[in-house]
Design a protein around this nucleic acid. Sequence first.
DNA 1: GCCAACGTTGGC
DNA 2: GCCAACGTTGGC
Length: 170
Amino acid sequence: MATKKKTAPTFRQYWLFKSEPEAYSIADLAREPTKRTFWDGVRNYQARNLLRDTIQLGDRVLFYHSNAEPMAIVGTAEVVQTGYPDHTAFDPHDHHYDPKSKPDQPTWFMVDIKLLQVFPKPVTRDELKDCSALSDMMLLRRGARLSIQPVTAAEWQAVHRLAGVKDQSI
DNA sequence: GCCAACGTTGGC
DNA sequence: GCCAACGTTGGC
C-alpha cells in the first residue's frame, strides 16, 4: 500500500517584498485573523514575472517597509499560494485598476503569504548597510526599485543575525 | 521637497 | 525601432 509521501521542498528560495507601511504594514498582516494576505498591486513586469512564474510554495519572504520611518526589514513570511491573477486589476474602483488586464487574460499576478514572525526590533536600512555580509544586497543598490527581489540564503541568515532572532523557516 | 533611476507612452 | 517626454519609486 504505497501512498506517496509528500516530500519537503529540497530547494527553497528567499525573497524581499517591499511595502509602504502606510499602504500595508507587517502590523496589518499580523492583525489578519489568518495571518495571511494576498500580495496585490504589483504593477511592474519584472516583478510580475517573479510572482507568476518563479516564486514557489514554501519560499520565504523578508518583509520590508519602504518610504517609512524607519525604513527597515520588519519580519518574515512564507509563501502559501503561488501566482494567480491579481483581481484588484479588474476593479475600476480599485487604486490598482488596470483596464488592460482582463479576467480571461490577466496581466497582473499575486501570491499569498503567511506571517512567520514579526522581528522584535526592525532591522533598519542603516543597520543593513553596515553589515558586510549584505554588501551585495539588491535592496541596497542604487536605483534598485524592484518591489519583489531575490535574496540569497546567506543574506537571509545575516538579516536574522541582525534581528537577533532564530530563523523560523528551518 | 528634491531628484536619480527607472519604466512607459506615443509621435515620428 | 528610436527617443523625448512624462510618470513613478523611493532614498536622501
